[in-house]
Design a protein around this nucleic acid. Structure first.
Lengths: 189, 189
DNA sequence: GCGTCGGCTTGACAAATATCAAGAAATCAG
DNA sequence: CTGATTTCTTGATATTTGTCAAGCCGACGC
Protein backbone atom coordinates (compact mmCIF):
# COMPACT_ATOMS: atom_id res chain seq x y z
CA UNK A 1 0.00 0.00 0.00
CA UNK A 2 2.97 2.25 -0.32
CA UNK A 3 1.59 4.50 -3.11
CA UNK A 4 -1.28 5.44 -0.87
CA UNK A 5 0.95 6.12 2.09
CA UNK A 6 3.35 8.10 -0.05
CA UNK A 7 0.55 10.12 -1.48
CA UNK A 8 -1.21 10.92 1.75
CA UNK A 9 2.08 11.65 3.43
CA UNK A 10 3.26 14.00 0.72
CA UNK A 11 -0.06 15.71 0.45
CA UNK A 12 -1.08 15.98 4.05
CA UNK A 13 2.31 15.93 5.74
CA UNK A 14 1.21 13.43 8.34
CA UNK A 15 3.48 11.64 10.81
CA UNK A 16 4.57 8.09 9.97
CA UNK A 17 2.67 6.61 12.88
CA UNK A 18 -0.59 8.36 12.13
CA UNK A 19 -0.12 7.53 8.50
CA UNK A 20 -0.12 3.84 9.32
CA UNK A 21 -3.33 4.31 11.28
CA UNK A 22 -5.08 5.85 8.33
CA UNK A 23 -3.68 3.51 5.70
CA UNK A 24 -4.87 0.49 7.65
CA UNK A 25 -8.46 1.61 7.13
CA UNK A 26 -8.17 1.40 3.34
CA UNK A 27 -8.90 -2.01 1.84
CA UNK A 28 -7.88 -3.17 -1.64
CA UNK A 29 -10.73 -3.25 -4.15
CA UNK A 30 -10.46 -4.37 -7.77
CA UNK A 31 -12.72 -3.51 -10.68
CA UNK A 32 -12.83 -5.04 -14.12
CA UNK A 33 -13.12 -2.80 -17.12
CA UNK A 34 -16.76 -1.77 -17.42
CA UNK A 35 -17.62 -2.40 -13.77
CA UNK A 36 -19.48 0.32 -11.93
CA UNK A 37 -17.95 1.94 -8.90
CA UNK A 38 -21.12 3.93 -8.31
CA UNK A 39 -24.44 4.52 -10.01
CA UNK A 40 -26.49 7.72 -10.05
CA UNK A 41 -29.15 7.70 -7.37
CA UNK A 42 -27.39 5.24 -5.05
CA UNK A 43 -25.61 6.27 -1.89
CA UNK A 44 -21.87 6.62 -2.16
CA UNK A 45 -20.54 5.30 1.11
CA UNK A 46 -16.88 5.05 0.22
CA UNK A 47 -13.85 6.96 -0.90
CA UNK A 48 -11.06 5.40 -2.93
CA UNK A 49 -7.51 6.07 -3.88
CA UNK A 50 -6.72 4.89 -7.40
CA UNK A 51 -3.65 2.68 -7.43
CA UNK A 52 -3.94 1.93 -11.13
CA UNK A 53 -6.45 2.32 -13.92
CA UNK A 54 -8.96 4.89 -15.06
CA UNK A 55 -12.51 5.73 -14.05
CA UNK A 56 -15.06 7.86 -15.84
CA UNK A 57 -17.42 10.06 -13.86
CA UNK A 58 -20.51 10.86 -15.86
CA UNK A 59 -24.24 11.29 -15.82
CA UNK A 60 -27.00 10.41 -18.24
CA UNK A 61 -28.77 13.61 -19.19
CA UNK A 62 -31.93 12.85 -21.15
CA UNK A 63 -30.48 10.42 -23.66
CA UNK A 64 -26.99 11.86 -23.74
CA UNK A 65 -24.12 10.98 -21.48
CA UNK A 66 -22.18 13.89 -20.06
CA UNK A 67 -18.70 13.06 -18.82
CA UNK A 68 -17.83 15.18 -15.84
CA UNK A 69 -14.29 13.95 -15.30
CA UNK A 70 -11.88 11.09 -15.82
CA UNK A 71 -10.01 10.06 -12.71
CA UNK A 72 -6.54 8.60 -12.97
CA UNK A 73 -4.02 6.73 -10.87
CA UNK A 74 -2.66 8.68 -7.93
CA UNK A 75 -5.89 10.53 -7.24
CA UNK A 76 -8.97 9.95 -5.13
CA UNK A 77 -12.42 9.17 -6.42
CA UNK A 78 -15.84 9.46 -4.78
CA UNK A 79 -19.09 11.39 -5.03
CA UNK A 80 -18.35 14.06 -2.46
CA UNK A 81 -21.90 15.28 -2.09
CA UNK A 82 -23.11 11.76 -1.45
CA UNK A 83 -20.20 10.76 0.77
CA UNK A 84 -20.42 13.83 2.97
CA UNK A 85 -24.12 14.66 2.99
CA UNK A 86 -25.53 11.24 2.13
CA UNK A 87 -27.40 12.68 -0.80
CA UNK A 88 -28.26 10.30 -3.63
CA UNK A 89 -25.23 10.12 -5.88
CA UNK A 90 -25.22 12.57 -8.75
CA UNK A 91 -22.62 10.71 -10.78
CA UNK A 92 -22.21 7.30 -12.26
CA UNK A 93 -18.63 6.13 -11.97
CA UNK A 94 -17.44 3.35 -14.24
CA UNK A 95 -14.07 1.66 -14.75
CA UNK A 96 -12.57 2.47 -18.15
CA UNK A 97 -9.95 -0.21 -17.61
CA UNK A 98 -9.15 -2.77 -14.98
CA UNK A 99 -8.73 -0.75 -11.83
CA UNK A 100 -6.98 -1.27 -8.49
CA UNK A 101 -8.29 0.82 -5.64
CA UNK A 102 -7.69 1.30 -1.97
CA UNK A 103 -11.11 1.94 -0.55
CA UNK A 104 -12.25 3.27 2.80
CA UNK A 105 -15.86 3.03 3.97
CA UNK A 106 -17.74 6.12 5.10
CA UNK A 107 -17.83 4.76 8.61
CA UNK A 108 -14.10 4.31 8.79
CA UNK A 109 -13.54 7.57 7.00
CA UNK A 110 -15.56 9.42 9.59
CA UNK A 111 -13.56 7.75 12.33
CA UNK A 112 -10.29 9.23 11.11
CA UNK A 113 -11.19 12.55 12.67
CA UNK A 114 -11.25 10.92 16.08
CA UNK A 115 -7.95 9.14 15.54
CA UNK A 116 -5.92 11.99 14.16
CA UNK A 117 -6.05 15.39 15.84
CA UNK A 118 -5.55 17.60 12.79
CA UNK A 119 -7.55 15.52 10.37
CA UNK A 120 -10.51 17.83 9.77
CA UNK A 121 -8.14 20.68 9.17
CA UNK A 122 -6.25 18.67 6.55
CA UNK A 123 -9.46 17.49 5.03
CA UNK A 124 -10.66 21.06 4.76
CA UNK A 125 -7.46 22.06 3.00
CA UNK A 126 -7.84 19.18 0.60
CA UNK A 127 -11.39 20.07 -0.33
CA UNK A 128 -10.49 23.74 -0.60
CA UNK A 129 -7.84 22.75 -3.12
CA UNK A 130 -10.42 20.80 -5.10
CA UNK A 131 -12.74 23.79 -4.95
CA UNK A 132 -10.06 25.98 -6.42
CA UNK A 133 -9.54 23.57 -9.28
CA UNK A 134 -13.24 23.70 -10.10
CA UNK A 135 -13.12 27.48 -10.06
CA UNK A 136 -10.41 27.28 -12.71
CA UNK A 137 -12.50 24.92 -14.73
CA UNK A 138 -15.51 27.23 -14.64
CA UNK A 139 -13.28 30.08 -15.63
CA UNK A 140 -12.15 28.08 -18.66
CA UNK A 141 -15.76 27.87 -19.79
CA UNK A 142 -16.34 31.58 -19.26
CA UNK A 143 -13.25 32.76 -21.06
CA UNK A 144 -12.00 30.14 -23.49
CA UNK A 145 -13.16 28.70 -26.82
CA UNK A 146 -13.43 24.97 -27.42
CA UNK A 147 -10.08 25.09 -29.19
CA UNK A 148 -8.41 26.85 -26.28
CA UNK A 149 -9.86 24.42 -23.77
CA UNK A 150 -8.60 21.56 -25.92
CA UNK A 151 -5.11 23.03 -26.16
CA UNK A 152 -4.90 23.70 -22.46
CA UNK A 153 -6.14 20.28 -21.46
CA UNK A 154 -3.92 18.51 -23.97
CA UNK A 155 -0.89 20.37 -22.70
CA UNK A 156 -1.53 19.18 -19.17
CA UNK A 157 -2.89 15.69 -19.83
CA UNK A 158 -1.16 14.31 -22.92
CA UNK A 159 -1.01 10.80 -21.46
CA UNK A 160 -4.76 10.54 -21.25
CA UNK A 161 -5.27 10.95 -24.99
CA UNK A 162 -4.12 7.47 -25.87
CA UNK A 163 -5.72 5.73 -22.93
CA UNK A 164 -9.40 6.58 -23.13
CA UNK A 165 -12.04 7.00 -25.85
CA UNK A 166 -11.63 10.56 -27.04
CA UNK A 167 -15.37 11.16 -27.05
CA UNK A 168 -15.23 11.17 -23.27
CA UNK A 169 -12.56 13.83 -23.22
CA UNK A 170 -14.62 15.82 -25.73
CA UNK A 171 -17.61 15.63 -23.44
CA UNK A 172 -15.74 16.69 -20.34
CA UNK A 173 -14.37 19.67 -22.25
CA UNK A 174 -17.88 20.60 -23.31
CA UNK A 175 -17.83 19.85 -27.03
CA UNK A 176 -19.05 17.18 -29.44
CA UNK A 177 -16.78 14.37 -30.65
CA UNK A 178 -16.88 15.87 -34.15
CA UNK A 179 -15.66 19.26 -32.99
CA UNK A 180 -13.01 17.54 -30.90
CA UNK A 181 -11.84 15.58 -33.91
CA UNK A 182 -11.60 18.66 -36.10
CA UNK A 183 -9.69 20.64 -33.51
CA UNK A 184 -7.40 17.68 -33.07
CA UNK A 185 -6.66 17.58 -36.78
CA UNK A 186 -5.70 21.25 -36.82
CA UNK A 187 -3.26 20.75 -33.98
CA UNK A 188 0.24 19.49 -34.62
CA UNK A 189 0.45 15.84 -33.71
CA UNK B 1 -25.10 41.50 14.22
CA UNK B 2 -28.08 39.24 14.40
CA UNK B 3 -28.23 38.30 10.69
CA UNK B 4 -24.77 36.88 10.96
CA UNK B 5 -25.55 34.95 14.11
CA UNK B 6 -28.79 33.70 12.63
CA UNK B 7 -27.05 32.58 9.51
CA UNK B 8 -24.15 30.83 11.15
CA UNK B 9 -26.44 29.25 13.67
CA UNK B 10 -28.86 27.94 11.11
CA UNK B 11 -26.16 26.75 8.82
CA UNK B 12 -23.69 25.29 11.23
CA UNK B 13 -26.01 24.41 14.12
CA UNK B 14 -23.67 25.86 16.71
CA UNK B 15 -24.51 26.41 20.36
CA UNK B 16 -25.55 29.88 21.45
CA UNK B 17 -22.47 30.37 23.61
CA UNK B 18 -20.03 29.31 20.92
CA UNK B 19 -21.94 31.38 18.43
CA UNK B 20 -21.30 34.48 20.47
CA UNK B 21 -17.61 33.63 20.55
CA UNK B 22 -17.43 33.45 16.78
CA UNK B 23 -19.63 36.44 16.08
CA UNK B 24 -17.48 38.63 18.31
CA UNK B 25 -14.57 38.12 15.92
CA UNK B 26 -16.44 39.67 13.00
CA UNK B 27 -16.16 43.45 12.69
CA UNK B 28 -18.47 45.69 10.68
CA UNK B 29 -16.97 46.95 7.42
CA UNK B 30 -18.69 49.29 4.97
CA UNK B 31 -17.96 49.77 1.30
CA UNK B 32 -19.21 52.48 -1.03
CA UNK B 33 -20.43 51.53 -4.48
CA UNK B 34 -17.36 51.02 -6.65
CA UNK B 35 -14.97 50.32 -3.76
CA UNK B 36 -12.72 47.30 -4.02
CA UNK B 37 -12.94 44.55 -1.47
CA UNK B 38 -9.98 42.77 -3.06
CA UNK B 39 -7.76 43.14 -6.09
CA UNK B 40 -6.21 40.40 -8.18
CA UNK B 41 -2.65 39.67 -7.10
CA UNK B 42 -3.03 40.93 -3.53
CA UNK B 43 -3.37 38.65 -0.54
CA UNK B 44 -6.87 38.09 0.70
CA UNK B 45 -6.58 37.98 4.45
CA UNK B 46 -10.23 38.23 5.36
CA UNK B 47 -13.61 36.60 5.03
CA UNK B 48 -16.86 38.53 5.11
CA UNK B 49 -20.52 37.94 5.60
CA UNK B 50 -22.64 40.23 3.45
CA UNK B 51 -25.24 42.02 5.55
CA UNK B 52 -26.49 44.10 2.64
CA UNK B 53 -25.45 44.98 -0.88
CA UNK B 54 -23.89 43.25 -3.85
CA UNK B 55 -20.33 42.43 -4.83
CA UNK B 56 -18.96 41.35 -8.17
CA UNK B 57 -16.17 38.79 -8.35
CA UNK B 58 -14.29 39.08 -11.60
CA UNK B 59 -10.98 39.00 -13.32
CA UNK B 60 -9.42 40.95 -16.18
CA UNK B 61 -8.49 38.49 -18.90
CA UNK B 62 -6.42 40.22 -21.58
CA UNK B 63 -8.63 43.26 -22.13
CA UNK B 64 -11.90 41.62 -21.24
CA UNK B 65 -13.43 41.36 -17.83
CA UNK B 66 -14.83 37.96 -16.91
CA UNK B 67 -17.37 37.97 -14.12
CA UNK B 68 -17.05 34.83 -12.06
CA UNK B 69 -19.90 35.44 -9.66
CA UNK B 70 -22.08 38.06 -8.00
CA UNK B 71 -22.35 37.71 -4.23
CA UNK B 72 -25.47 38.84 -2.46
CA UNK B 73 -26.70 39.56 1.03
CA UNK B 74 -26.83 36.55 3.33
CA UNK B 75 -23.75 34.88 1.85
CA UNK B 76 -20.04 34.94 2.50
CA UNK B 77 -17.42 36.43 0.26
CA UNK B 78 -13.66 35.87 0.06
CA UNK B 79 -11.00 34.49 -2.25
CA UNK B 80 -10.79 31.00 -0.81
CA UNK B 81 -7.53 30.04 -2.46
CA UNK B 82 -5.89 33.18 -1.14
CA UNK B 83 -7.48 33.02 2.30
CA UNK B 84 -6.59 29.40 2.89
CA UNK B 85 -3.32 28.94 1.02
CA UNK B 86 -2.13 32.55 0.97
CA UNK B 87 -1.82 32.48 -2.78
CA UNK B 88 -2.06 35.80 -4.59
CA UNK B 89 -5.74 36.53 -5.11
CA UNK B 90 -7.17 35.31 -8.37
CA UNK B 91 -10.23 37.53 -8.25
CA UNK B 92 -10.96 41.20 -8.05
CA UNK B 93 -13.97 41.86 -5.85
CA UNK B 94 -15.79 45.16 -6.18
CA UNK B 95 -18.91 46.61 -4.57
CA UNK B 96 -21.79 46.95 -7.04
CA UNK B 97 -23.69 49.02 -4.49
CA UNK B 98 -23.07 50.36 -1.03
CA UNK B 99 -22.25 47.28 1.01
CA UNK B 100 -22.36 46.38 4.70
CA UNK B 101 -20.14 43.51 5.73
CA UNK B 102 -19.14 41.65 8.86
CA UNK B 103 -15.50 40.86 8.33
CA UNK B 104 -13.14 38.51 10.12
CA UNK B 105 -9.39 38.62 9.63
CA UNK B 106 -7.46 35.53 8.65
CA UNK B 107 -5.76 35.49 12.00
CA UNK B 108 -9.01 35.52 13.90
CA UNK B 109 -10.53 33.10 11.46
CA UNK B 110 -7.76 30.62 12.04
CA UNK B 111 -8.23 30.97 15.79
CA UNK B 112 -11.82 29.76 15.64
CA UNK B 113 -10.61 26.19 15.31
CA UNK B 114 -8.96 26.45 18.69
CA UNK B 115 -12.02 28.00 20.32
CA UNK B 116 -14.67 25.68 18.99
CA UNK B 117 -14.09 21.94 19.04
CA UNK B 118 -16.04 20.96 15.94
CA UNK B 119 -15.13 23.94 13.86
CA UNK B 120 -12.91 22.31 11.24
CA UNK B 121 -15.53 19.68 10.71
CA UNK B 122 -18.19 22.32 10.08
CA UNK B 123 -15.85 24.26 7.88
CA UNK B 124 -15.20 21.16 5.85
CA UNK B 125 -18.92 20.61 5.38
CA UNK B 126 -19.36 24.20 4.30
CA UNK B 127 -16.62 24.02 1.69
CA UNK B 128 -17.88 20.65 0.51
CA UNK B 129 -21.24 22.28 -0.10
CA UNK B 130 -19.60 25.03 -2.12
CA UNK B 131 -17.70 22.41 -4.07
CA UNK B 132 -20.95 20.69 -4.94
CA UNK B 133 -22.42 23.93 -6.22
CA UNK B 134 -19.44 24.44 -8.49
CA UNK B 135 -19.87 20.92 -9.82
CA UNK B 136 -23.41 21.85 -10.78
CA UNK B 137 -22.19 24.95 -12.46
CA UNK B 138 -19.65 23.04 -14.53
CA UNK B 139 -22.31 20.57 -15.46
CA UNK B 140 -24.44 23.44 -16.75
CA UNK B 141 -21.64 24.36 -19.14
CA UNK B 142 -21.20 20.78 -20.31
CA UNK B 143 -24.84 20.07 -20.92
CA UNK B 144 -26.78 23.31 -21.48
CA UNK B 145 -27.00 25.95 -24.20
CA UNK B 146 -26.72 29.64 -23.43
CA UNK B 147 -30.49 29.86 -23.51
CA UNK B 148 -30.90 27.01 -21.06
CA UNK B 149 -28.34 28.47 -18.69
CA UNK B 150 -30.16 31.77 -18.88
CA UNK B 151 -33.53 30.20 -18.13
CA UNK B 152 -32.20 28.19 -15.24
CA UNK B 153 -30.38 31.10 -13.67
CA UNK B 154 -33.31 33.44 -14.15
CA UNK B 155 -35.64 30.97 -12.50
CA UNK B 156 -33.47 30.84 -9.41
CA UNK B 157 -32.25 34.44 -9.23
CA UNK B 158 -35.01 36.67 -10.55
CA UNK B 159 -34.28 39.38 -7.96
CA UNK B 160 -30.77 39.89 -9.26
CA UNK B 161 -31.96 40.94 -12.73
CA UNK B 162 -33.11 44.37 -11.67
CA UNK B 163 -30.27 45.02 -9.28
CA UNK B 164 -27.09 44.69 -11.31
CA UNK B 165 -25.93 45.55 -14.83
CA UNK B 166 -27.07 42.66 -16.98
CA UNK B 167 -23.76 42.47 -18.78
CA UNK B 168 -22.25 41.04 -15.60
CA UNK B 169 -24.86 38.32 -15.42
CA UNK B 170 -24.23 37.59 -19.10
CA UNK B 171 -20.54 37.20 -18.41
CA UNK B 172 -20.99 34.90 -15.44
CA UNK B 173 -23.27 32.72 -17.56
CA UNK B 174 -20.62 32.58 -20.27
CA UNK B 175 -22.19 34.64 -23.03
CA UNK B 176 -21.92 38.11 -24.55
CA UNK B 177 -24.26 40.95 -23.57
CA UNK B 178 -25.76 40.83 -27.06
CA UNK B 179 -26.62 37.16 -26.84
CA UNK B 180 -27.99 37.73 -23.37
CA UNK B 181 -30.17 40.55 -24.63
CA UNK B 182 -31.57 38.48 -27.49
CA UNK B 183 -32.35 35.52 -25.28
CA UNK B 184 -33.98 37.87 -22.85
CA UNK B 185 -36.23 39.24 -25.58
CA UNK B 186 -37.39 35.77 -26.57
CA UNK B 187 -38.31 34.93 -23.01
CA UNK B 188 -41.64 35.98 -21.53
CA UNK B 189 -41.14 38.97 -19.31
C1' DG C 1 -33.78 71.35 -19.23
C1' DC C 2 -29.70 69.65 -21.54
C1' DG C 3 -25.81 67.17 -22.57
C1' DT C 4 -23.13 63.18 -21.28
C1' DC C 5 -22.44 58.62 -20.20
C1' DG C 6 -23.19 53.93 -19.16
C1' DG C 7 -25.83 50.25 -20.37
C1' DC C 8 -29.12 47.92 -23.31
C1' DT C 9 -30.85 46.69 -27.82
C1' DT C 10 -30.89 45.82 -32.69
C1' DG C 11 -29.30 44.61 -37.28
C1' DA C 12 -26.08 42.70 -40.50
C1' DC C 13 -22.77 39.65 -40.82
C1' DA C 14 -18.96 36.32 -39.47
C1' DA C 15 -17.24 32.62 -36.91
C1' DA C 16 -17.72 28.74 -33.97
C1' DT C 17 -19.95 24.74 -32.95
C1' DA C 18 -23.63 21.22 -33.52
C1' DT C 19 -26.12 17.91 -36.24
C1' DC C 20 -26.73 14.27 -39.40
C1' DA C 21 -25.07 10.82 -42.28
C1' DA C 22 -21.64 8.05 -44.18
C1' DG C 23 -17.53 5.73 -44.21
C1' DA C 24 -12.75 4.51 -42.35
C1' DA C 25 -10.06 2.87 -38.70
C1' DA C 26 -9.26 0.63 -34.58
C1' DT C 27 -10.52 -2.78 -31.21
C1' DC C 28 -12.41 -6.93 -29.54
C1' DA C 29 -14.32 -11.62 -29.27
C1' DG C 30 -14.18 -15.98 -30.85
C1' DC D 1 -7.37 -14.29 -38.63
C1' DT D 2 -11.99 -12.62 -39.28
C1' DG D 3 -16.25 -10.62 -38.62
C1' DA D 4 -18.61 -7.57 -35.50
C1' DT D 5 -18.66 -3.60 -32.88
C1' DT D 6 -17.09 0.58 -31.30
C1' DT D 7 -14.75 4.74 -32.09
C1' DC D 8 -13.02 8.23 -34.97
C1' DT D 9 -13.12 11.11 -39.04
C1' DT D 10 -15.05 13.71 -42.76
C1' DG D 11 -18.35 16.37 -45.49
C1' DA D 12 -22.49 18.99 -46.02
C1' DT D 13 -25.40 21.79 -43.73
C1' DA D 14 -27.97 24.07 -39.86
C1' DT D 15 -27.87 26.45 -35.65
C1' DT D 16 -25.91 28.99 -32.13
C1' DT D 17 -23.17 32.43 -30.62
C1' DG D 18 -19.93 36.22 -31.35
C1' DT D 19 -18.46 40.65 -33.46
C1' DC D 20 -18.96 45.17 -34.96
C1' DA D 21 -21.42 49.26 -35.45
C1' DA D 22 -25.13 52.12 -34.61
C1' DG D 23 -28.83 53.87 -32.11
C1' DC D 24 -31.75 54.27 -28.06
C1' DC D 25 -32.90 55.01 -23.38
C1' DG D 26 -32.61 56.36 -18.78
C1' DA D 27 -29.86 58.27 -14.97
C1' DC D 28 -27.25 61.96 -13.44
C1' DG D 29 -24.70 66.14 -12.87
C1' DC D 30 -24.89 70.81 -13.74
Amino acid sequence: MSELETYIQSYFGIEQKEMATIAALFKPEDLKKGDYYLKTGKLCNKLSFIKSGLLRIYVKDENKEVTQWISTAGYFVTDLSSLVFQNPARWTIQALSDVELYTISRNDYNRIGKLIPDWHQLEKLFIAKCFTMLEDRIFSHLSMSAEERYAFFFEHNKELFNQVPLQYIASMLGMTPETFSRIRKKTIR
